[in-house]
Amino acid sequence: MPLWTWTGLKAGRAATHWPLHGPDGQEGVLGMPRLDPGACAPNCQRCADSCPTQAIRFADGSPELDYGRCIVCQTCVEACPEGALQSSFDWAYGVRQREDLLWSTALTGDEAETLARRIASSQRRSLHIRHVDAGSCNGCESELNALDNPFYNLHRLGIFFTPSPRFADLLLVTGPVTATMHQPLLQTWEAMPEPRRVLACGTCAVSGAPMDNGYAGGTGLENLLPVDLWLPGCPPNPAALIHALLVLLERMPQRVLGGQYDHG
């Protein structure tokens, strides 16, 4: 008997009803750090000095946080003496524009209202995914595998993985895209029928961090393929993956705008 089947029988828990309601399976799991620039001490750069991926930089004395380079290690939270960086449980960081992972003013006005109307009127449809490992450490793959377990049961949402790019709607890429994977990745993309989309899954697929300075590292998907959705995390958890896929299908709203997380 498969392990997940036996675990489910013992626990008496069927597939979750999330995202409609019910648990998302990430209770108590730390997410991306929250930033309060107003709490920063003058001339303090301890967070930037401690960050292993250079996700935090200072310009004119103010911190700039790039969630697309964050690996959720919490080192900056531990290093900050003023509490300007705090741990959180925020994990739904799938965004349509790379710029939305940079801390700035949140999206407001007509553009936000138009997007909300599109989401509200969107028709639900199925999605077939072709996954390509472009140099991953297999952290993202372990979370992708969890999508098929009885708790998350991705198929209930009409989302499926396919072994052939010729039947795929979405190219899901993990890993920093090492030099040896450039050509196989592009060949997979070219084999997909139109319309086709791309999801950068994991911080290394978004920006290459923390391997972008290594001899065999890559710089992610930016300037390589037309990315439709950016999902940072090291690795992003199964709930974050489901949320990102539903954002892509316009069945859920984006939670992060201008680097700021909407808790509404």
Rank of each mutant, 00 (worst) to 15 (best):
C201Q: 01
S136D: 03
A179E: 08
T178I: 06
S142G: 14
V77P: 03
L20I: 12
G233H: 00
R46H: 14
N138V: 15
A168G: 09
N138M: 13
A146L: 12
R69H: 05
P236M: 06
D100F: 05
L221V: 10
E78H: 10
Q45D: 15
G31Q: 01
C80R: 03
I242V: 15
E190T: 14
R197Q: 05
H155A: 14
D110P: 08
V95H: 01
L231F: 11
P2N: 05
M252A: 07
L20M: 09
R156M: 11
S104W: 05
P226C: 10
A116R: 09
A59Y: 10
E99T: 07
V95G: 01
H243L: 07
R124H: 15
A92K: 03
L185C: 03
G218A: 10
E190A: 14
R96D: 07
G109N: 07
N43Q: 12
L245G: 04
G264K: 15
D228C: 08
L9Q: 13
D60Q: 13
T203G: 05
W4N: 07
A14N: 07
L127W: 04
L185P: 01
L127S: 08
T75L: 13
Q254C: 14
S136V: 02
A112R: 08
A240I: 00
L172D: 01
P150E: 00
T180S: 13
L199I: 10
A41R: 15
N223D: 15
W230I: 01
T180D: 13
A116F: 13
L157S: 14
P226M: 07
S121L: 14
P52G: 10
P33R: 02
C73G: 14
D169W: 11
L107R: 06
